[in-house]
Structures are given as C-alpha cells and as structure tokens.
C-alpha cells in the first residue's frame, strides 16, 4: 500500500484488528529476526519496536483517511564504531518496506566521499546521483558530521547538505535518510545544522556491547564461517575481549571480527606447520594458541598506538 490517496477515505465502523494488520504486514518476522540475530542492543530493539508500532498505526490511520501527510521518518543512529548501526539500518529498510513507507527497500550506504565533489559544480550532480539510487529506499550516511566542516567556509559539503535538506523535506514519501556517527560529534553536528535536527524524527542511541555479549557475538561470527572455539579457547577469548577493550581504537564487534580473522590466520599457519595427518575436526577448531598469539596478550603496555592486535 502506498501513501497516495486516490480512493476516498473509508472511515471505519467495525473494530480494527491491529494484530491482524501486524501479522499481515510481515513485520513480525523482521522484528523477530532482529531479536534473534542481533546480540544485546536492548534499547535499540525496544526503540525499533516502538517505531514499528507507530508506523503500523500510522498506516492504519492512512487507510481510513485520518492521516493525510507522509510522516517524517528520517532517523539518526548514534553510537561507537562496531555497535551495529549499519546492520540495524538494513533491518530498518526491510521494516519500512514491509509497511509500505518506502517502495523498494534498498539501503544505499554512503560517506562524505560519495556525496561531496572535488571542485566547484561537482557536488550537486554527485549528490543527486546518489539520491537517485536511494529513491524508493533508505539512504544511510555514515559519519554524517564530516559533511560539515565549519573551519572551511568554502567547503563543498555545505552544498551537499543543502540538497539533502531539500530532499528530506520535499521527497519524504520517496526516501528515508538515516544519519549515523559517534554520539558527541553528531550532537555538535546537529547543533551547527539545526535544519537536520528538525527534520529527524527518531534518534536512536546504540550502547557499547558488554563483554559477555561480545563473546556471544564471536561465537556467532565463527559459526557463520563454520569454525568454533575449543572450550579452552572460549575462555581465552573472554580474556582477550576484556583486554582488547582497554586498548586504543576499540570498536566493539568490528574489533572482534578482526581478531577472529587473525585467529583464523594463525590457525591456518598452525595446521600447515603441523606434522603428519590432520583430523578434519581440526579444520574447524580455534585453539587457545591461535588467540594467545595476539599482541594484546604479548604486551603489558596498553598505551601503544597499535590499531588492532
């Protein structure tokens, strides 16, 4: 169902079965998937349920002609790196598609480089090109604050911002814009660009993951690649997470993914160096030494500026 109202509104006389509307839209599958596939993120999930409920009621209201305007659906996702903003944005696109608030439901993920040009007259076509791709779906702007550089008044980012603001206002039924980034820098960005703040309906804050949540994320990540921890290795991974968090450039789930990639690398080297035949089960098993090779365990000095270890 689209947002246009060609046929005259039918005011209801019968009671409305919201549960049936909910089931009919197929969003319960998306929401359950969100609950099942994403570890932690309790406040985010709660907020998304709230938004989904709002959208569902809005849709029913539209059906009966109580709501006349396309609602503002633009959102901002704030949180540290690796807290699942892009993943949730993808789910959001499916929810919006299921409820008919976007027509196609694709997610176009961009950063400043994709929107802002390098010379005069380059920005507008570039931004419009991206917007054309995003029409009918969701435009996800990662680290949106880089669009605005207050220290350089001739920066072309301003031009991209103006086009975005215009589209966010005038083409609300065509696309939904999600701005994402670190909480503090987004706050500053919104303070300097009040136009964005007023056009954004939903602010969602992504908390950092707990250590236990990260451990369970690492289990899932390995499982997806057909690996698993040996019982000892899982204990080591728990210690790794605690130590990694104290080090610079910790980025939640992304750091975990990088750590596991390197553990796989060490595992492969260990297997190659192994004399004799290899038990097929060894191919899928991450052992403690694959994790203990990490620099996180080798160095006691946590102030060094190495990116990941």
């Amino acid at each position: 169902m689209m947002l246009d109202h060609a046929e005259p509104a039918m005011r209801p006389t019968e009671p409305i079965d919201l549960k049936a509307e909910f089931a009919g839209a197929g969003i319960s599958e998306v929401l359950d998937g969100l609950e099942r596939d994403l570890v932690g993120l309790k406040p985010v999930k709660a907020r998304i349920r709230e938004i989904a409920a709002l959208l569902l009621v809005e849709r029913v209201r539209q059906k009966y002609g109580y709501a006349t305007e396309a609602p503002t659906l633009h959102m901002s996702f704030t949180g540290n790196p690796g807290t699942g903003k892009t993943t949730v944005a993808l789910r959001m696109a499916s929810i919006l598609k299921a409820l008919g608030f976007v027509r196609q439901g694709q997610l176009i993920s961009v950063t400043r480089d994709d929107l802002v040009g390098q010379y005069i007259g380059h920005t507008a076509p570039k931004t419009k090109e991206i917007l054309k791709k995003a029409i009918g779906g969701v435009l996800f702007i990662d680290e949106a604050y880089y669009l605005y550089r207050p220290d350089n008044e001739r920066d072309y980012g301003q031009e991209a911002i103006e086009i975005l603001l215009q589209v966010m206002e005038n083409q609300r039924e065509d696309l939904v814009v999600i701005l994402a980034g670190y909480a503090d820098r987004m706050d500053k960005f919104f303070a300097l660009n009040p136009g964005f703040r007023s056009r954004i309906a939903h602010h969602i804050d992504f908390p950092d993951y707990e250590n236990a949540e990260l451990l369970s994320i690492s289990d899932t990540m390995l499982q997806r690649q057909n690996y698993r921890f040996s019982p000892d290795a899982r204990v080591v991974m728990d210690r790794y997470i605690a130590r990694r968090r104290e080090r610079p450039y910790f980025s939640n789930a992304r750091s975990i993914r990088n750590a596991l990639d390197r553990a796989r690398l060490r595992q492969a080297n260990r297997l190659i160096a192994h004399d004799g035949l290899i038990d097929p089960a060894m191919l899928t098993m991450i052992e403690p030494e694959d994790l203990l090779g990490s620099r996180v365990f080798l160095e006691t000095d946590t102030s060094s500026g190495e990116i990941d270890a």
């Binding site: 791709k133 029409i135 009918g136």
Partner: peptide, 14 residues
Amino acid sequence: PMFDIRDAKAIMGE
C-alpha cells in the same frame, strides 16, 4: 544509461 536505480520515480525525474 541509468544503472543501479531501483525506483521509477528517479527516472521520471530525469
């Protein structure tokens, strides 16, 4: 040619 476009509205604009 307009590759990577998902919705007719973008092309109607062009």
